[in-house]
Structures are given as C-alpha cells and as structure tokens.
Amino acid sequence: MKKYKKPSLFLLVICMFILPFLLNSYWLDVLTLVLFYVVLTQGLNIVVGYTGLLDLGYAAFFAVGAYTTAILMTTFHWSFWLTLPVAFLFAAIAGVIIGTPTLRLRSDYLAIVTLGFGEIVKILATNLEITGSASGIYGIPRPAIGSYIMASQKDFYFLILIVAIISIIAVYRLGHSRIGRAWVYIREDEDAAEAMGINRIKLKLLSYATGAVIGSFAGSIFAVKMSAIAPLSFSFLQSVMILLAVVLGGLGSIPGVVIGAALVIILPELLRGVEDWRYLIFGVSLVIMMIFRPQGIWPTKNNTEDVDDIETEDPNQSISISK
C-alpha cells in the first residue's frame, strides 16, 4: 500500500491540473471553491486537529487576508504579490491576539471566546470606513505575472490549486517536525507536555499564528478572484462550515480534511435537484455520518500498529504455535 502512495499522489495532482480543461465553467467554479476550502481546512487543521483548540471564529483570519490585500491593492495600489507578506504578518498578529486571552481556557470557554473574536472582526469590517462598511470593497485589480494579467476562471483555479498544494505540504511537514509533535502532545495532555519541557503558551500561540497565516493566504486570493469582498463572506456560518469540513474528514488527518472540504462544498451542489430539501438532506447526512463514523471519514492513524499484529509477531507465541 505504502509503495503506491507517491505515484498515486503524483497522478492525482496531474489530474487536478488537467481537470479544468474537461469541466464546464459551473463545475470549475465549484472545484475552485473546494480548493479554497482545502486551504482553509488545512489551516484550521493545525489549530483544531493538531493542537486540539476548538476555534469557532476561523473565518476572521480569512477576512484579515482578504481585506489586507483588498485595501493595499485599491487604496495604495500595491502589487498583489507584495500584499501577501503583509497579509501573513497581520494574520499572525491577529492569531496571537486571539490566542493570548484563550491560553488559560479549555474546550467550551475557548469556543465562546473564538466565536466572539470572529464576530468582532466581522463587525469591524462592517463598520470601518477603510473596509468599505457593509458594502465592502469592490474593483480589486487583477494580479499580474510580468505582463500577463490573471483574469480567467482557469487562472484562479491554477493559482488556488498551487496554494492548496503548498499548504498541504506545509501542514504535512509541520506535522512531522518537533513543532507539530509538540502541538499534538498539548492536545493529548497539556500538563504532561509542559512537564516534558514543552512551553505550552509559546506553542499554542504559534499554532494560532500558523493557522491564521494559512487562512489569510486563502483570503488574499479570494479577494483578487472575486474582485469584490463584503463582510457577509466572513460570517459565523463560514467558520462553522470550515470547522465542519475538518471534523467530518477526520481531525488532524490531511487527506481526511481534504475530503471533508470537498464534501462540504460538493454535496449541497449535487443536491440542487431537490431544491428546498437540499440543506435538510445535507444536515441529516451529516448527523448520520457523525453517528456511524465519529472519528471522521479518513482519521489519523499516528503510525500505530494494531494490537493483534504485535501478538502474532511475539516470538514466544510463534514458538508455541510451531510446537
């Protein structure tokens, strides 16, 4: 199984690059949205999946990225690419700001504070002049590579596809480093992690900041793709949908949350035929899913062996069998 992992991943990526030439513009748009969700869920996966901190305001970081890019490009006429590092910086700062008051909180209290933070960002965006109040910011210019101006649907599909691949690699690599393991130790047992020399305050803040940066990356691209943004795109419902994709796919599992992102976007589209029943069926299927597979569609394995495997490998036992 492991032998085929790399070639099949490679094949999948190639398929993703060919796909836009085979799809009509409606499904290409759906797929683009899926990829936005892939980036967002990977970012949230760090906070909720790895570190185990429930975050109900994640769309706020999506908004920070989108608004930073939009404001810098419209008011200050920056190039799109230069707005990215600034968006990352602002998102990281926002991550630390939301992280600091939640450090001593656990589970439900933490969820409420993050929910509040998400609402604060949305309300700020609705009321500040610089963010264009309720109508948002429109006329965001198209990004350019040299003299080529990205404007077509396919251009943005490829852009977000590349960002999705980058964020998957980033989250995978972080997960397999001492930083990523430290996050998981904190999720498993905070006090034990602290006793093992892991500074939980520092690492929790790092987790928020890293997740925020990835979320803002999606936001920046969202701004230039839509060329207009409004506070409505960054509502509580958005945060919930991203969280839903992560939980549905399998907390902490990279392939899991990718599948979760695809399901959350594609399923309602597939159900368009049943019109008014659409969200009812979607909701019911989620409930059924959580009852029969609470660990998610593709849960993490943490490289653990099944207990049965070991018993049969036990030398004493195999001797007694041969006798």
Binding site: Y185, E188, D189
Partner: peptide, 17 residues
C-alpha cells in the same frame, strides 16, 4: 500521564523537545 493515542516512539520523542 502518557499521551494515550500516540505510539511509544512518539511519546518518548517528546522528551527531546
């Protein structure tokens, strides 16, 4: 106070952090 869902190896790796 182990990290219950992680492997023995990952548990011990925490010490090297």
């Amino acid at each position: 106070r182990l990290f219950p869902n992680l492997t023995v190896l990952d548990n011990v790796k925490s010490g090297m952090h």
